[in-house]
Deep mutational scan, measured.
Amino acid sequence: MRSPRTRGRSGRPLSLLLALLCALRAKVCGASGQFELEILSMQNVNGELQNGNCCGGARNPGDRKCTRDECDTYFKVCLKEYQSRVTAGGPCSFGSGSTPVIGGNTFNLKASRGNDRNRIVLPFSFAWPRSYTLLVEAWDSSNDTVQPDSIIEKASHSGMINPSRQWQTLKQNTGVAHFEYQIRVTCDDYYYGFGCNKFCRPRDDFFGHYACDQNGNKTCMEGWMGPECNRAICRQGCSPKHGSCKLPGDCRCQYGWQGLYCDKCIPHPGCVHGICNEPWQCLCETNWGGQLCDKDLNYCGTHQPCLNGGTCSNTGPDKYQCSCPEGYSGPNCEIA
C-alpha cells in the first residue's frame, strides 16, 4: 500500500473562530452545534475503483483480482440542504470535509470508535433544520502531484436527524465497494433544542441566579424568581408596597416606613400621643390635641387635680377649673 497522505478536516480554523465568538458573545450567535460522521468499515474485495480499474497495477489473469497494490482509501463528505432527488452538483451549503487515508481495500474501525482519523466534524452556527442531504465518497489517494485521485464508491442519503448523543448507523451496500458509517448531530455546550438555537448558560451573578434543565429552560436558584432569576424573594410577610430586597430573605423599608415587614409608618418627629397611617403624620389619640398630640384635652380625667370633693371642668388643652364644695378653696380645693 502506498504511503498515506493526510487530509485535514475542512473548515476547522473557521469552526474554532466561530466557537470563540459564540463563547464571548453568546447572544450574537443564534445557534451552535456540529454534524459528526465516523467511518466504521470498508470492504473493497478486489481493490477496484468505481470505473472498474484497479487502484494500482493490473489484474491477475486467473481470479481477475487486482494484484499490485491496495487502495489508499480516504473519504470526502458533503452536507447540504434536503433534496428529495439528490444531485451531486451544487455547493455543500451545510459544510464539507475529508479524512486522511485511513486504510486499504478492506478495514474495520468499529473497535477504535472515537479515533479522530476516521471522524469528520462539520460545525454550524445556524439553526439546525433537522432535514438534510449527505454525500459520502470513498477515494483512492494517488500520492502523486500529477496523477489525480480516483473515486472508489459514493453514497447519498436524505433524511431527518435531531440533536442527540446517540449515533445513527448507515450503510452503502451497492457498487464495487461497501462501507458503513455513523452520524449524529450534537449541540455545543449551553445550546439546546432541535435547532441547537436555545441558549442557556448557568450563572450566579448580578445578571441572574439559575441553572439549566435538559431542555435549556432556566431554573431559578432558591430565593430568586423572574424570567432571568434576578429578582430576590423577600422575607415572608414583607410589604410588597413599602418593602423590597436585593438579597433573598431580606426586607428593606422605603423612606418613611419601618418594622420587620416594613408595614409600620414613621410618625412625625416628636409626636407624643399620636399615630400615623402614612409617613410623617401625627393623628392624635382620644383626649389629646396639638400638632404633636402633646396637649391633654381631658386634664381632669387624666390627672384628677381637684381635692376634697371638688368638681373638675376641662377648660382647654392642659387647662381645668375646680368647683370647690363649701368650706374649701384654692385652685385644687386644697385650702380648708
Rank of each mutant, 00 (worst) to 15 (best):
E278K: 05
P61Q: 12
C196Y: 05
W128G: 04
A138G: 04
Q43K: 01
N217K: 09
A232T: 12
R119P: 03
G175D: 03
M225V: 12
S239R: 12
G223D: 10
C220W: 00
L260M: 08
G309V: 12
R119S: 05
Y181D: 00
C262W: 02
N44K: 07
T286I: 00
R252S: 06
R235Q: 09
A138E: 00
S158T: 05
S131P: 13
D149E: 09
P123R: 08
G223S: 01
S313R: 07
M160R: 10
L260Q: 09
T6S: 14
E70V: 13
A88V: 12
N197H: 05
C71F: 12
G175R: 02
T99P: 06
T99M: 10
Y210S: 13
F179C: 03
E70D: 14
K218E: 14
P267Q: 07
L283I: 06
F94L: 11
G309A: 08
I233S: 14
L247P: 09
G193C: 11
S32T: 06
V86D: 06
P240H: 07
K171N: 08
W139R: 08
A211D: 02
L17M: 12
G237V: 02
G52E: 10
L292R: 09
S239C: 09
P227L: 03
E285A: 01
A336G: 11
L247F: 05
N314T: 09
P317R: 08
R184G: 01
S10T: 15
R85H: 06
Q168H: 12
G256R: 02
K110E: 11
A336T: 11
K198M: 14
K154R: 13
T302A: 09
G289C: 08
Y74H: 11
Y181N: 00
V45L: 08
K154Q: 15
F194L: 10
V146L: 10
G95V: 00
I266V: 07
L40R: 04
L49Q: 07
L40P: 03
G216D: 10
W257G: 03
H157P: 01
P248S: 05
E153D: 12
D205Y: 03
S323A: 07
C265Y: 03
N53I: 13
P13T: 15
T6P: 14
Y190N: 04
Y261N: 03
T286N: 01
C333R: 03
D140H: 07
I152M: 09
G89V: 10
S3C: 15
Y191F: 11
N118K: 07
E326A: 07
K76N: 13
C238R: 09
G56R: 02
D296A: 04
R235L: 05
P202H: 08
R85S: 08
G290R: 02
P305R: 06
G327W: 14
C245S: 08
T67N: 06
K246I: 07
N230S: 13
Y190H: 10
S10C: 04
E334K: 09
D263N: 07
S15R: 08
V121A: 06
K27N: 09
Y261H: 06
F35S: 00
G289S: 03
L49P: 06
S10Y: 15
E81K: 11
C324S: 04
T73S: 05
P123S: 05
F35Y: 01
D188N: 08
F107L: 07
S323F: 15
E334V: 15
H157Y: 12
C234Y: 08
N115T: 13
C200Y: 09
D188V: 06
Q168L: 05
G216C: 03
K76Q: 14
C253Y: 02
H268Q: 10
G33V: 01
P4L: 14
F126Y: 02
G290V: 02
E70G: 15
N314Y: 14
W280C: 07
Q172K: 03
G193S: 03
L297V: 10
G52R: 06
Y210H: 10
F124C: 01
N298Y: 01
G259C: 02
P91L: 12
Q304H: 08
Y181C: 09
A26S: 14
I183F: 12
G237R: 06
Y191H: 06
